[in-house]
Design a protein around this nucleic acid. Sequence first.
DNA 1: CATGAATGAGAGTTCATTCAT
DNA 2: GATGAATGAACTCTCATTCAT
Lengths: 237, 237, 237, 237
Amino acid sequence: MPETNTQTRRQRLEAREDAIIQGAHAEFVASGFDGAKVADIARRAGVAEGTLYLYFRNKRALLAAVIEAFYGKLTETAEQGVMERSETAERLRFLARHHLGYCLNEWGILSLAVPAWSRVTEYRDSEFIELNRTYVGVFDRVIREGISRGEVNGEMPLHVMRDLFYGGLEYSTRSYMVRGQDMDDEQAIDRLSGQIMAMILPAFGLAGKPQSEPGEDEIGQLAQRLENAVDRLEQLK
Amino acid sequence: MPETNTQTRRQRLEAREDAIIQGAHAEFVASGFDGAKVADIARRAGVAEGTLYLYFRNKRALLAAVIEAFYGKLTETAEQGVMERSETAERLRFLARHHLGYCLNEWGILSLAVPAWSRVTEYRDSEFIELNRTYVGVFDRVIREGISRGEVNGEMPLHVMRDLFYGGLEYSTRSYMVRGQDMDDEQAIDRLSGQIMAMILPAFGLAGKPQSEPGEDEIGQLAQRLENAVDRLEQLK
Amino acid sequence: MPETNTQTRRQRLEAREDAIIQGAHAEFVASGFDGAKVADIARRAGVAEGTLYLYFRNKRALLAAVIEAFYGKLTETAEQGVMERSETAERLRFLARHHLGYCLNEWGILSLAVPAWSRVTEYRDSEFIELNRTYVGVFDRVIREGISRGEVNGEMPLHVMRDLFYGGLEYSTRSYMVRGQDMDDEQAIDRLSGQIMAMILPAFGLAGKPQSEPGEDEIGQLAQRLENAVDRLEQLK
Amino acid sequence: MPETNTQTRRQRLEAREDAIIQGAHAEFVASGFDGAKVADIARRAGVAEGTLYLYFRNKRALLAAVIEAFYGKLTETAEQGVMERSETAERLRFLARHHLGYCLNEWGILSLAVPAWSRVTEYRDSEFIELNRTYVGVFDRVIREGISRGEVNGEMPLHVMRDLFYGGLEYSTRSYMVRGQDMDDEQAIDRLSGQIMAMILPAFGLAGKPQSEPGEDEIGQLAQRLENAVDRLEQLK
DNA sequence: CATGAATGAGAGTTCATTCAT
DNA sequence: GATGAATGAACTCTCATTCAT
């Protein structure tokens, strides 16, 4: 009985903490750190304002918890997806889709950890940096293993590959969002990650896709396109 | 006399406006938008607080002015640098160094325009987006011309190339800053941009350095040029 | 059995109440009334916060209990010390040392009852006043008995003697604490109370100490000093 | 014109600062430091809450200003009153009435500086201590001069005399207020200070009132005067 | 009886904006 | 046009008190 009670109580506490983190997550995404009001976080979480401070020292600690939780989930699912695949190219394509998916839905969170990066002096930032480092560690391992397997060109610095990979993905998320979502997100993720990977994989030394090998077929395609263009021109006339 | 006066007065006003924008720029970079205090901006600009409101409706308008001025300079210098170079690879290398240089020194400003992107509803954002579009237009033109010249592989969508280029550069800026500056910035810029370009240029179809020696590949090049011509024809439509 | 139980239970309750009062005492001394946190009192007492409210209606009642307990002990020990002595001078010297000792160690508590005195309207104050009256009643009885014995000069109002006695002691405690404790407390108590009493006892009509009675020796000393002074004057010349 | 303007503006600022200090003074006296609400201080001063912070960094600084202003006035008037009198006994009687008057009307303020004394670690306290030291310096000088004139018995430590003087006065203020004001304050001041001084002056070696009638004690007096002369001679050295 | 998580009113403080000079 | 003192709404955080367990 007491055990059940304890169990129940502890569970309730954890459920509450989760609710608070979720509420904070939503509010931070919606309004940014400074724009987020503690009162609104509390309302979203369904608790009183004062209650927040039983779980987190202050607003900043709340942000830290949110980011930590987010990176935790991100890293875990990334790791899992990688383990389920064996080929390097496949793994990278998965990581790209995975990252892009989170970026698209929760763009705000990732950028919440960033502004702090500009003021390097702030010591708390190291916390976020560490989380990020752990996350990109998944990518690093994939690449290292690819190199040792001879699938990946090992001549270029790992960190450059990483920067290109994540930078390209995140920037294209922004671009996509700015263009305005004209297709559903699933499609967008597939398409965007596909395009990015089509450029990056070869750069990494991995054949983008075995796909159509260049050859005489290209000439055929070209001929086709020329004919189409001419058709259209004729119509314009 | 009155003309001189008017002239002088107008100049004085513009000088003030510039001073204010500069002060705001510095303060925004140092503290972010929410962290920036109007009082500090005024102090940096050497004017009274109230004076700011004679020139700009409110803090937000001040930010808009700062970003506009920044993008203006950014675009102008980019354009100029491109014009001074003729080869596509050279131009891209310049754009990379140029962008990286601004990123490194004024990281904050670029990110100030971004957070708004997450809240797509905010109508003012379109203003910043337009500025950014104009800026990256420089890159776009370089690429289009490169394609039409046959220097750049025209198979991949332009926006993907752009995302990879700017995304890779900005992400590596962040990485560099996080690692802690262990070399002076000039060196860092050369090195980082060099590494990024070493990966990107080949991906764009530009031989990193040794460049494609002319030879029997002429048929391929011909095909490429034909294809580019088609692209342009299609765009004309 | 039930009696034993009741007995045990009652004892437990009293022990708890005492623990709470002690904890509150310590916290109040350390932080003052407003600065004291109920949570800290509970921690010091080793009970839960809510438990405090089973024993005391609120924080204010807790303070009342603390002060009452403190004055109780103060009065009791004062009374006892007086009874163990018979001469008025001895008794007063004891009371001085006794009061000073408490002042030095528990300065905070006495002053906790005071601030309320400034807001005369607060009705609860009478409670503290009564406690203080009872306490100084010990002094009053000593004086009255001294007067009736002819040891004390009965011409001056009792309350003035009391004010001088306690006021002098408490003010010199403050002075001593401000100067910074440069001697151990036992010494300080002896010395301070000695000095104060040396002035007060004669004023009360009690010979401070039998000490050196004025006589012809004074003239000898004076002669000596005059000679010394003359010597020095001659040297100056 | 500009001078007049400046003058006016500066005067207005000073007037406001004074109003704020007065408002804070009243509120602090009425409610104590912790009990005082900044909002109420602002209302009493007739300014907005934010305005307070243009003049004083925070609530604590406000208290410091209040106490400083109070001690300033206290010291000044004390000094002046002393200068207008020449006999030591007269001077002390004046100081007593003077101190008592302030105590009676503004009891709260003096005690506001005290609670901090219990927590000796707080560095700001030294500020208050210094103010108090300056104030009692007036008393000290009166006594020292009295000693050098031979009017005051120089055998006892100065700080003990001081403690007795101020302690007695303040304690009797409290007693008086506790008893409930049954007479008007002017009367009370005269009476209380008279009673205290009647005990203290003799203890200081000053004949309370009737003063020593001249007579055969002439030899003793002569000795005293000689001794005083020696003192002064020694100090000249 | 005991607990301690939950509450929410209320505190001090900040700062973008205004307006009398 | 320029100033900067004044404003007051809005924020984060604290903590005495309550009450379901």
